[in-house]
Design a protein around this nucleic acid. Structure first.
Lengths: 208, 208, 208, 208
DNA sequence: GATGAATGAGTTTTCATTCAT
DNA sequence: TATGAATGAAAACTCATTCAT
């Protein structure tokens, strides 16, 4: 009697990942408010008190999801955009990685993100993430500038970065809503807008 | 006995506006889910059943808010960007009007919009609004192109428009979160990014 | 100016009938509880306060419906079963009239009746109606008996009458649920059950 | 510290029965619509969410009551009417058991039944129960017939059975309304009406 | 006589969260 | 560690009923 049933008494870390998997799924499907802890627990194949014991309240659980997915995304981007490339090449690779990630996790990241934006409670977490992204983008731009011997006010850099991030988010959203769309192509379009600007485009210019 | 109590037995149209005012406020403060019909009614100085009688369920009420505020915004923009101006001037005026509106209704539009994006139920309403905006922007661009004797694939136009709208929304969001920021300045920055593109900016170019 | 709009200011009695028509319809469709005064008023083409002014509360309104329809039914039966006919002929005609009525008002009588039976509030009204029916039936039987020179305890008469009425109601219910069924045939069947049983009893037969 | 508090943390099965007991009582007292889930929970000595968790919505709860009580009644009848007895004896025992049951549960079965009849939502459940009863009764009659070497059209059997059931229900109702009445006596009376009528029919007699 | 405006009071239902075992 | 049992608190929605005009 009592050979251990292969799926019980897992180490804490593993259990937590299972729960997060379940939670991401449920939150994505029904949104933050529509999701119920019951369903999360059920999908994780575990009892509710366990979820509370491991990952805390619903709010904390959501933050944990956001954090894990966000980190994964950042890593994907960072891994793609090597710092020693020229600015436009880095931007392009970053964008491609980003849209690739969003495309591959259509039901994950974009939805969580949208949810987070709607709830005051997550403002801080989001602000942190966005700051990190903006920093990265602004860093790219700054790097490029310095390479050309120029200098630009920090605020301006930040605003450009913000706008780029915003435009990108928008297209990512659009991508999440259009299952048939191609991430690669979306990245290209974004690159064109971002890099050249509307005026250039109107004149027939194309990046690459 | 005598002078009008001023706030009882009002005609339907008036009450509806009062309710919408209250609803916009409450939804903005607590978000769609955090808002309770009780509070909406209370803030409107009326009983709950009236809200249901006039504006329907919570969902419908929210849509009504979205609709009213969205329409107001569109009108503000349309009123500013006269169709006979050159493309960049129109874009500029439109942006200025937009950021002006958002700045003036800091607790209104941007928050409702964020809320709407988080809930599947409002996807349709949103899609409609966005389509109208994108059409307007794409129209501007198209107009400018034809003036120069060029033609551009419709899809490309749409994507450019989408990205612009996204970037703008992002800055609007940022504006809503930064009470001290200046709408006019934000509009200018956005214009620079949009019109010139990052590459131009990096080279020191500035619109105007 | 001011030729009277043909459908306003009707005499009270007419208005009341219109309301009752509407009410019977609504109660039949949705049941007593499912029905709303709003719908009654709307269907009667009149405002709610009028309904209250003319026919009182929802409960009173329902009683009024019950009363009118019940009276109509009783009259239909009484009109059919002339007192100078032999007992079986009278019973037969009565049954035929009853099932005919129920069949013709499939959505009226039977449904109201079922509703009334479920609500304590209508017990009195119902008891009154049933008493009248039972009296009629018992009267028929008694008449037949005396014609044969017999006499039977009143209680027994009442019970037989009760059982007959119950069986009849049951078949009426069944008829209301089966739109394709033929009232005439149902009456015949009921007659067979009722008459052969009753006849034996009347002749003094007893089981055991 | 020590002896069992006896009424806390009970196993599900037990709690469910307690809830059903409470529900039957409350539904019987106030009717389906008059009953509130609050009262059911209170009377069961438990909080409302438990009721929902175990027995579902109000409608489902009512169906559960109906089902349990109906099954008990059927069992009482089936247990009384052994299949190897002569037809009249079986009918008699069945009737006696039925009236006995109704008499013993004056506030249970008959009231639930009346309620169920008033609500469209329960039509299916009721139809099922009635079908089972009618089948049993028709089976009895059929058995008796075959014993006498006769055969009767199925439809006729069904109608006779229906009428019997209806008459019986009616007397049961009457019994539920007359607390002083004697179930045994009521059964006897019903038997007289039913048997003398049915016996004639079984012998091939027809009115007209 | 007639009605649009208004509401008090109540209902069902859901959920995050926690004991007791 | 793990869970079935349990709940407090609230929220959306409905309806019979009545003023004030």
């Amino acid at each position: 009697m009592s050979s251990t049933p292969a799926f019980k008494r897992l180490p804490r870390a593993v259990r937590e990942q299972q729960m997060l998997d379940a939670a991401v799924r449920v939150f994505s499907r029904h949104g933050y408010h529509g999701a119920s802890m019951d369903e999360v627990a059920e999908r994780a194949g575990i009892s509710k008190p366990m979820v509370y014991a491991y990952l805390g309240t619903k709010e904390e659980l959501f933050v944990a999801c956001l954090h894990r997915e966000g980190t994964r995304m950042m890593e994907a981007i960072a891994g793609a955009a090597a710092p020693d490339l020229p600015a436009d090449e880095r931007l392009w690779r970053g964008l491609r990685a980003f849209f690739g990630f969003v495309g591959a996790h259509r039901d994950g990241w974009a939805v969580l993100y949208r949810q987070a934006r709607a709830e005051r409670a997550f403002a801080d977490e989001l602000a942190g993430m966005r700051t990190r992204i903006v920093e990265v983008v602004a860093g790219m731009l700054d790097h490029a500038l310095r390479a050309e011997g120029r200098e630009v006010a920090e605020t301006d850099l930040e605003v450009v970065a913000y706008a780029l991030v915003g435009a990108t988010e928008s297209l990512a959203d659009w991508l999440a809503d259009h299952p048939e769309a191609d991430p690669e192509k979306t990245a290209t379009r974004m690159m064109n807008v971002a890099w050249l600007g509307a005026a250039q485009l109107l004149r027939g210019a194309r990046w690459r």
